[in-house]
Amino acid sequence: MEVLTVTLNPALDREIVLKNFRINEFHRLDSQEKSLISPGGKGINVSIMLDDLGIPSVAMGFLGGYIGRTIEEELRREHKNITTNFTYVNGESRENITLIDEVNQTITEINTIGPQILKDNMDRFMKRYTQMLGHAKICVISGSIPPGVEKDIYKQLVLLAKEKNVLTIINAKDDLLSYALEVPPDVVKPDMRGKRILLGHELDSLQDYVDSALEIRKKGVKLAVISHELTNDVVATGDGIWFFKPRLRMATANLLGTGDAYVTGVVYSLYTDNRDWLEVAKLGMASAMRNALSVEKEVKVDIEEIKEELKNIEIERLH
């Protein structure tokens, strides 16, 4: 098993599609297809997309209760290239409920909180994680953390991976990422949804992005990818700083899951032994762009379809 994905706070995504959603009213769905469940959480999403590309991975993290078991069973039933290795805890895993009103074009979301993680749970997870690192090459650490987990957890995970010469990719918000940067990880893709804050600074002008990219690179990161205005990226490698832009405008409504698709492209590239970091970034963006062609969170595509998008990326050197 060469690829590990870590999702400390997995979720069961439940999408309910209805007509004329009204608060304080009774709604009945007319078919089962109007209520779909799928395992979620950023690392798990990467495992699922890798499965579509035929790349096996081990998915790790914490699961709890009935929802936890459903997440695990759905993963196993639908995705033959995923090996599960979850640590069970008391309490229920998160459930992210999305109510989509087809008529009024509204989206209402309700996210539950993850289970409380105790020290003993964490110790068990760390033991399993260390065991798995022994025969891994690439480790993806993604998403938020459940209550009870220390803020510097990603730093600890990256440190352990480095000891075993495992490449690390982190896709998380600034508060979790900044600790990990002290190690540092090999690939960094800050999760900028909601806030444009990186290393504690608010990013405004393009120069701010370049400065942040330089700062991250100085810490020893081999590839840093910072989203700029939703669809563009500022990419830093050891050789320079680049601006990546899709040739065609992307529909912002389709951007759900593109961050995970990006990471999937990066993993695919590294898995096939590519170490030209600029090329790695290109495949990441191509994978995100392919994903953004449709509205669904996960789209089953093959690698050739992803590579088709490479020609639609405009690249300009910034530094």
């Binding site: 196993r76 033959k80 995923i82």
Partner: peptide, 23 residues
């Protein structure tokens, strides 16, 4: 079933029972 849930020789019997129950 691609699941690698396991225990170690230093784990307690209680841990084994819990693991079996959870899974």
């Amino acid at each position: 079933t691609r699941d690698v849930t396991s225990v170690g020789l230093n784990d307690t019997l209680e841990r084994v029972v819990e693991t079996c129950a959870h899974h």
